[in-house]
Design a binder for these strands. Structure first.
Lengths: 191, 191
DNA sequence: CGTCTATTTGAATGTACTCAAAAGCGGTGG
DNA sequence: CCACCGCTTTTGAGTACATTCAAATAGACG
């Protein structure tokens, strides 16, 4: 199991001893996920929070009228789960699917609770992670409300160039909240 | 300074000794805010995270085209700040204004850092607070993307009946991401 | 190489916005 | 306590942005 990446991700915010690192690593489950495979499916229990070691995944949900809405992408060095359902233990609202072959390290809620007990410092780590996630999400809300589709598209591409280059346009459209046809049209207009 | 409310808010997630409670309280600044007064203004430094003891406030920002967008409301027993700017120390993107006379307990970033040092348990408290805030915001994103304006309006009213009854309709419209004229029209159509 | 999926293009439609003006309502001062 | 003023809400007409549906084209994977 390749663990340098997750360890250095954690080292961004808290300091662990070698022993603590080893303990933390022992809690993780290593998953190799093939293209189009799921690590979480809508309505199933959401038991894990996942760190992406390599590859690219997408969280999305299907609205009542049958349309897909992309909630987030997660590339290398990102964490991804259905946080609401992970914390409340409700069945997942979203599905998480690999866009390309990926390696994911999963931490179950049970193990995470154990981790908080043994190394309370992890509360700080996830506090900061959640602060950032919340801020990002709030910024997204604000921008969805105030920017036009084309501006949101440009903002997305400049923020996440790697993701933009790898995922099909229709997924970007569904992240931005427009139809693929419309995104295609407005992109064409610019040239 | 009335402090039972903030103490019981904290007791939802962590247990403090009487001594720790007293120390925590000593870090707070008590503010009485009149109707339409601000506790944070766009472009000013965002130094505080605020707990609402009573009353009702609104966070909003002005988009490039000059329109107001309501980001959140905070009533009694809620926390409010510009989290992105609070954590990154950038100038505030939003203004926070009292909708009615309110009492707010403010905790500065400096004091909060001190608090994390003295009582690391607060990392757990704010971790949980941020998890909830993130989940809520993600749910909002999802619903903005997939529900029609009228459904979003109904959802808002059923989730926050007190807020819905107190704030002008135009603020709800700006929270939902529609114009007041349009919200007025679709409400009228239902009858 | 063939098949399946993604993207583009276009026409018709619907949803939400802008601007303007009238009506309603609430607080304040006389 | 009532009348006025300012702000909020409603109403309507014209317009712009985004969607739906359909079909053609391009591209990618096995």
């Amino acid at each position: 199991m390749q663990t340098e990446k997750i360890i250095s991700n954690i080292a961004k915010h808290i300091v662990l001893s070698a022993e603590q690192e080893a303990y933390f690593i022992s809690l993780l489950e290593h998953q190799e996920v093939k293209r189009n495979e799921f690590i979480l499916r809508e309505n199933h229990p959401c038991n894990n929070i996942n760190f992406v070691t390599s590859g690219l995944l997408r969280a999305y949900f299907i609205s009542p009228n049958g349309k897909e809405h992309t909630i987030m992408f997660a590339k290398e060095d990102w964490w991804i789960t259905d946080m609401y359902c992970f914390t409340t233990r409700k069945p997942a609202m979203v599905s998480i699917q690999a866009i390309e072959e990926s390696i994911v390290l999963s931490l179950s809620r049970t193990k995470l609770d154990e981790l908080y007990q043994k190394i309370p410092e992890f509360n700080k780590f996830f506090r900061i992670l959640m602060e950032n996630a919340y801020s990002r999400e709030q910024l997204r809300t604000v921008q969805n409300l105030s920017f036009s589709a084309i501006d949101r598209y440009h903002d997305f591409v400049s923020k996440y160039p790697l993701v933009a280059s790898k995922v099909p346009l229709k997924h970007i459209a569904s992240y931005l909240g427009v139809t693929p046809e419309f995104l295609s049209t407005i992109r064409a207009k610019e040239k």
